[in-house]
Amino acid sequence: MNRDTIKKREISGRIKVDRDKCIGCLGCMSACIVSHDGHSPRNRVVISSDKVSSPIFCQNCDLPECTYTCMCGAMHIDPATGFVLYDADQCGSCYMCVMGCPYGVLRMNKIDGKISKCDMCVSDRNGQPQCVDRCPMGAIAVERGVQA
């Protein structure tokens, strides 16, 4: 995918975090592991230089570097939802997306060597991101109808 050819798109939702509410409990990471069958979590939490817990989630970027750097089309924009989705079957495990992600949130999945990429829990039986459901502090929400 060429970044010059990408069109503006509607995204069904984007994870939004209120850092002031985050307590660094890592419940979002646990939820992610559980809802993705024990695979490496698709999010992470770091402690910032100002000592604040800072959750990092895939932003389904307006201009997603992971899709530009992907040489196999594994990282792609889903036309129905606007989400950046990942097709492991097409992935060549070159990890260019990992290097390209400006948030450093993509990582290798420890189980199969592919990529752990947030899919907004589209495959979860509960139907919405489990990090949102499991956050005890209400720090994580889905911002709906985002124009990218």
Partner: peptide
């Protein structure tokens, strides 16, 4: 690692 990334290394 996930824990160490998210917690202070020093007493606070």
């Amino acid at each position: 690692d996930a824990v160490q990334d998210a917690v202070s290394q020093n007493a606070y």
